[in-house]
Simulated assay, not measured.
Amino acid sequence: RGSFRPVTYATNDMLDGARRQFLQESGCDESDVVVLMEMTLENLLAEGQLNHADFLARVDILGALGRTVLISKFGEYYRLAAYLTRYTSKMVGLVMGVPSLMEIFDEKYYLNLEGGILEALGRMFKGALKLYVYPMIDEATGKIVTARQINVAPNLKSLFQFILDNNFIAEIADYHCEYLAIFPPDALAKLQTGDSGWEKMVPPEVTQIIKERGFFGYRRSSAAA
């Protein structure tokens, strides 16, 4: 799951690392693995309004990269998990960054559930599902933060440890440290303001299609003008 606005080197690094780990742990053959780039329709609500063109631009870019796109209506991860496990009895892996894992352990997202976060996590992990979590850089300290190092509310620490102890969460261990400093919002801001630095943050195929089709409010840099 992601916003893919735009796809960066970090996006591909996260997915590639998770894929290698998933193949080792699941025992599946490469040909049996289906990789889906999922976006929820809730991401259409950018800046308080529906932006269909922006959303479809992300689909076009992922398609150009040879990725299979799944557009869902599931805002919560446990609902996405239930949908995916409905169609397979084999292992399912959800790939995400540390910030998304922190959101999963934020109780405010489950106020509509009678059982709260316990119900949500019970639904999520009742099948053969595992989270593969990409580390992040703490911008305040410059240190790498992994899945096991996130801070959760005191009343959730035992629950979080239970999830870890039962191997429902795996840290993506094979990654490129230099890509951790790439943040899609930074790349987006640069491409919209004519700063060519964004081109170093995304794969060449992504650069080409954004320039050719003017996606995401792309502006040519003054140096290239």
Rank of each mutant, 00 (worst) to 15 (best):
A181L: 10
L164W: 08
D186I: 05
E103V: 14
R123L: 14
I182T: 10
V98R: 09
A120L: 05
G197H: 08
E139D: 13
L113Y: 01
V133P: 02
N151K: 15
K200M: 11
N166A: 13
A153N: 11
L191N: 02
L118T: 11
G115M: 00
I209R: 11
F125P: 05
A140I: 07
K211D: 02
S100W: 04
M201E: 11
L191F: 00
P99I: 00
Q192C: 09
I172V: 10
A147F: 01
A153I: 01
S158M: 08
E178C: 06
R148A: 14
G115W: 00
Y109S: 07
N166E: 10
T146G: 07
D106V: 07
I163H: 08
Q208G: 11
L164D: 06
V145C: 02
A140P: 12
G122M: 07
M136P: 03
D186W: 04
L131W: 02
L156N: 04
R148P: 09
G142F: 00
T207H: 08
A187I: 00
C177G: 08
Q149V: 02
A189H: 07
I210A: 08
Y109F: 10
V95S: 02
L101Q: 05
P203T: 12
V145H: 00
I182A: 11
F105H: 11
M96H: 01
E114Q: 12
A181M: 12
D186H: 12
D165T: 04
G97F: 00
S158T: 14
D186E: 14
G197P: 00
F125Y: 04
I137S: 13
T146Y: 11
P154K: 06
R123F: 13
M201C: 00
W198E: 04
D138I: 02
D174V: 11
P135V: 08
G115C: 01
P204L: 00
F105A: 09
D174C: 08
E114T: 15
L131Y: 01
F168C: 13
L164A: 04
I150S: 05
D165H: 01
L191W: 10
L131G: 03
K190N: 02
V145W: 01
V133T: 02
D106S: 12
L164T: 04
L94V: 12
N167F: 07
K190A: 07
L188M: 12
R123A: 09
T146V: 10
E103L: 12
L94A: 09
I117D: 09
Y132I: 13
Q192R: 03
E205K: 13
G127D: 15
A173Y: 03
D138F: 00
L159W: 02
F168T: 11
T193M: 06
E107H: 10
F183Q: 14
S100T: 15
L118K: 14
D138A: 03
L129W: 01
R123Y: 10
C177D: 15
L101F: 06
M102S: 14
G116L: 01
E205F: 03
M124I: 05
G97Q: 02
A140Q: 15
D106F: 04
F160L: 10
V202A: 05
I117N: 04
I163Y: 06
Y132H: 02
I137E: 06
E114H: 12
H176Y: 03
H176A: 14
L111Y: 06
E212Y: 00
W198M: 01
F105K: 10
A170D: 15
L113C: 07
T193C: 04
A147T: 08
I182F: 05
A181H: 11
